[in-house]
Write a protein that binds this DNA or RNA. Sequence first.
RNA 1: GCCGGGGUGGCGAAACUGGUCAGACGCGCCUGACUUAAAAUCAGGUGUCCCCCGUGGGGCGUGCGGGUUCGAGUCCCGCCCCCGGCACCA
Length: 812
Amino acid sequence: MTIEGDEPRYDPHTIVDKWLPVWDELHVHEPVDDDSLKRRYVVDMFSYPSGDLHMGHAEAFSIGDAVARYAMMCGYDVLHPIGWDSFGLPAENAALKRGQDPREWTYKNIETQAESFKRLGISIDWRTRLHTSDPEYYRWTQWLFLRMYERGLAYRKSAPVNWCPVDQTVLANEQVIAGNCERCGTPVTKRNLTQWFFRITAYAERLLDDMALLEGKWPDRVLTMQRNWIGKSTGAHVDFRIEGHEVPIRVFTTRPDTLFGATFFVIAADSPLAAELCSEDNREEFAAYVEQVRKATEIERLSEGREKTGVPLGRVAINPINGEHIPVFAADYVLADYGTGAIMAVPAHDQRDLDFARAFDLPVRVVVDTGQPDPNETGLATAGDGVLVNSGSYDGKRKEEAIPAIAADLQRDGHGEAAVTYRLRDWLLSRQRYWGCPIPIVHCDECGIVPVPEDELPVVLPEIDDYLPKGRSPLATAEEWVRVDCPRCGREARRETDTMDTFVDSSWYFMRYCDARNETAPFERELVDYWLPIDQYIGGVEHAILHLLYARFFVKVLNDMGLVGFREPFARLFTQGMVYYRGAKMSKSRGNVVDPQPFIERFGADVVRLWCPFLGPVDQDAEWHEDGMEGMSRFLHKLWRVTLAAAERPPSARVDTPLSRKTHRTIAKVSDDIGRRFVMNTPIAAVMELVNEIGRAPDDAAVRFAAETAVSLIQPYAPHIAEELWRRLGHEALWVAPWPEADPALLQTDTFELVVQVNGRVRDRMEVAADLSEAELVARATASPKVQAQLDGGQIRQTIVVPRKLVNIVVA
RNA sequence: GCCGGGGUGGCGAAACUGGUCAGACGCGCCUGACUUAAAAUCAGGUGUCCCCCGUGGGGCGUGCGGGUUCGAGUCCCGCCCCCGGCACCA
């Protein structure tokens, strides 16, 4: 298997077999943690072990590795870790389908994937390796949960929550995509359940504010998506007294200026408040309505243009600003968990309220004159600017003056105040499934909710026989595990049987990487502060508001706890597009995965690593195809050929030849593309161009230098062939070789091709000296016979000179 | 409906701040070399139409219609189509 000597042909496999063990043995991909070195922390979003890697992974990790290797060659001490997000539903579903233990299935897949990463030659520091389903890891997930609990950031409440009837578990809002379950696509329904939440809403403002730190460093669309998701709106809280009810009911409105136009009052039908307020006479009708609402899926409920429905509650609310009595309804167009779950309805100025008013024949009173036609006639609510009417002493005020004025008056009179509300809701973290991190809580009849003492962590996931989801956690069937002495009073108590959402596991893994084997803490602050924030985080757009928001929240909490010294985890984010195949996103669950392995066997890892990013701009979606991978293989053969030929030539010192100039331009282009622009297809194309030039100019004095440079520049993408060719060029290890630097003097040319235009159309081009003055350039241009022919005696009205580029002559 | 992204050759795509006849690089296709032949490999050509035997020359071309400019794929206005996100959030 020796590769010494002069094989005429490039054989990818012998090269991979030669260098992989060398890299491993010499630990070349582990940082040296030298304080004097500039450092880079490059993280690819970790993988979910639902099977072997597919081309989507291959693309993502090719990009990440190119960034990591480029940074290494630029002299950075690079930490490039790896791990697996190994808890989660698919393992459990697969286990059910095959009668296999979720553990076995998961860890087998992890091994397969790890092997694939190795075969691809990704520059990973394997010492960081972690799996979120290892007790050594989830012990600290539980520990963090308890710290959150102590701070009141983890709590239990009964609320209407999203329920997936197929997966038989609750879901966070972020996991409901257009009314469907994120994982299985089933329409989601609502249920009133007691569940665990993280108080992410307490951080809404800071999550929003700190986006200023990310501006320009994260893709705009991700920031926009997060901003929309948090959904801040400013307005006022207004308290309405309900006749025969002691406590006033508070509503939120963005339009306190329309308070005089409130002609009825609506409470979310599925909120406890509606049931509480319902009068005896209306109870039957109300119960039937709530039943109907509960059964509707989220998708039906949200569909636009749907008839407004609701029932009267037989109650009267009193408008605090004018004492007016208005009827109270329960309806499902008001959401129980946004704002206060109740609204004042102003049909003239809100389309939804107007639709309801027309369905129930309720009065519509215009209180802001916008100059638009009367909503009573058009059926269209008016929302624009205008002047207040029918509003007592506020008449004549403009909308924007009225909003603060009314809010201030409400506050003065104790009926409300200016307020801010967010669309973001608390993060529902408990799941009624087996394969997840157990929530470290004990329920005691005497003491209530009792946290598991720290020294008893981890609460190990018990082994059970039946994983089948039944609407309550399968953990409940592990009776011996559930039964436990209360840590506080010692009486018999029961363990919490819900497990955590996997997004909890993935909210802190990138910190654990820095201290993956720590047995006394989740990580040491010093180590984490050394590497984080992550310099470059790379992953799919699909996590724009799930993982990326949750992780930001976690880091802010840890920062408040003094466990880390930074507020944002990901200084720079790159989101690659998704890889599609046969019209759908490539994924195991859709059954349209393309396995890289056969291609690695046929063409070698380098070709696969080059081909994925070459498919198109990596930030955009791409349709997978393999026509062209062959061409990539041809390119490497050509690189091999021209480099071995160049290796025969004497070393080329700094010479000024066409090829050396091309080489320097290529260095500048590739460095800029990878380092600044973050594009991956064009640097590969640029190296191809250079290699073509080398092939065409085998006798150029700079040929050896050009070949050496091509080998260096391709290293981030094709490290194996690069390493081998580098040695054959007579050098030591490529991984310690510096990234080539472009010589500015050789980027510029002494002459350039001057383009001569007449009236904006190119008529001639000529090679001229670079140091000619503008006047001289114009003189040369006008002297051209072709230009003269075009001028045809006409008057020259203007000449435009673009330095080093063109002269444009404008004639009448 | 609202918010993003996009529409360029037979195909994937380049053109980064308006400036070298737009189309780099790769695929495909065509031609040639090698071969008895084919495959593989290598070299060259390849937007489109018109005049011309050819050399050469000219016109038209970046979803559609306008505009700004000496000059527009790039900027502005108005449309059409595709993809993604959000969607009764008061």
